[in-house]
Computed example of a mutant assay.
Amino acid sequence: MAAHRRSRLRTREPGPAATRAQPVPDYSLAHLSALSLSPPELIEAAAGAGYRYVGLRLTRVTPDEPHYPLAGDPVLLRETKARLAGTGVGVLDVELARIGPAEKVRDFLRVLEVGAELGARHVITQLPDPDPARKTANFAELCDLAAPLGLTVDLEFPSWTETPDLAAASRVLRAADRPNAGILVDLLHFARSRSSIEELRRLPRDWFHFAHVCDAPARIPSSRDELIHTARHERLFPGEGGIDVRGILAALPPDIPYALEIPRTTLAIQVGAQESVRLALRATRHFLRPRE
């Protein structure tokens, strides 16, 4: 397994050719973009729209959101595997290992195991914990659990949590010092936290395995509730808002996949979840197409 993990990581390291020409990115469909769809339905929607990967949410983040217990439902797990095999869509990541003061890291072992069983490369984590030493120790332990399964652990930094920006996430990675550790740059969280593109450019390239891509209005909401509402329900397609989408992505390695996390509840009600994610991919490809 360890050798397999190292092979995976090597395939994502940009070589000289990647620095000279911008490759065409692979696209993944993050589950939050269409959380009303079960994992098999999400895979079918991704295949129909032209995504190469999906990200699957294995844990419930809020009490009122849909929950698809892949880690505890063998029938749903078999159906999900069958859809993956039938469509050729892969699993890029699983989420969410959200570890605060009350959570135990080993409680997420089954999530990691199912992610590896589905062929995922990464597991997303958040650290809403005010104790720097404890959250670093928990992050390191999660990395150690994930490593034999061939998974990287990618730390996301929503601006309303106790790990609220790129600088805070960087401190955790440096202190944990694990080879399979990573930072997940979500463009919304990056912009809302006023993180620095210059700082992003200075960080180790092998910390970045994929990115969450979206847009949003330039105005940063003043309340936590507003921040969360935009993040979970009303993001925009790239080019529709005020985030420096191209600038942030240009500071990341050029060959990482782009996971579209663009929940648009109002649009999905109007046109359906499947059409909403199709429009998201079309708009993103158009916006990020190479300029002549």
Rank of each mutant, 00 (worst) to 15 (best):
R12V: 08
A46K: 00
P74N: 13
R232P: 00
V111N: 04
Y27G: 11
E261F: 03
R232Y: 10
H189R: 05
P217M: 00
P101R: 14
A146L: 10
A191F: 04
P74W: 13
L37E: 03
I183Q: 07
R78H: 04
S38N: 01
L112P: 09
E199P: 05
L187M: 04
R224H: 13
P128K: 11
V123K: 01
D206K: 10
G242C: 03
L149P: 05
P290L: 01
D144M: 10
L173M: 08
G88F: 13
R246T: 02
P179D: 12
H122P: 06
S28R: 09
H209Q: 05
G48W: 01
L279W: 02
R219E: 14
D26N: 02
L267S: 12
D225T: 14
A283N: 00
L142Q: 11
K104L: 01
A147P: 08
F208K: 02
V61F: 09
D154V: 06
I183S: 02
G15E: 13
R78P: 02
A49K: 06
L118Y: 05
I220R: 12
H122N: 14
V111T: 13
L32Q: 00
E44K: 13
P132D: 14
P130K: 01
D225F: 12
R171S: 06
A218S: 13
D154E: 13
A280E: 06
L227W: 03
T230Q: 15
T59C: 11
P25D: 11
D93G: 02
H31M: 09
V277H: 00
I197A: 06
S222W: 07
A231H: 11
R282C: 04
Q274R: 15
H229Q: 09
L142F: 03
R264T: 01
S195L: 09
L260P: 10
C214M: 12
V111Y: 12
R232C: 03
R278Y: 08
D255H: 11
L173S: 07
L173Q: 02
A140F: 09
T284E: 05
A259L: 01
R110G: 02
P263Y: 06
P263T: 01
A140E: 11
P101T: 11
H67V: 01
D215S: 08
L279Y: 12
Q126N: 05
P238F: 13
E199S: 10
L252Q: 06
A46N: 09
P132Y: 07
T125P: 04
G242Q: 11
H4V: 15
A71C: 01
E103I: 08
S159A: 15
A45D: 07
A211Q: 05
R224K: 15
V245D: 07
N180I: 06
L155M: 08
R278F: 02
G272L: 00
A85V: 00
L288A: 11
Y27A: 11
P290A: 06
S223M: 07
Q270D: 11
R224F: 05
D26V: 02
P290S: 10
G72R: 14
R106T: 14
T62S: 08
I228D: 00
R121H: 14
A176G: 13
R171T: 10
W207D: 12
W160E: 09
T62I: 12
V91F: 11
E226W: 11
P238S: 00
F190E: 03
A45I: 03
A30Q: 08
L200A: 14
P148H: 02
R5N: 03
V105S: 00
E79R: 15
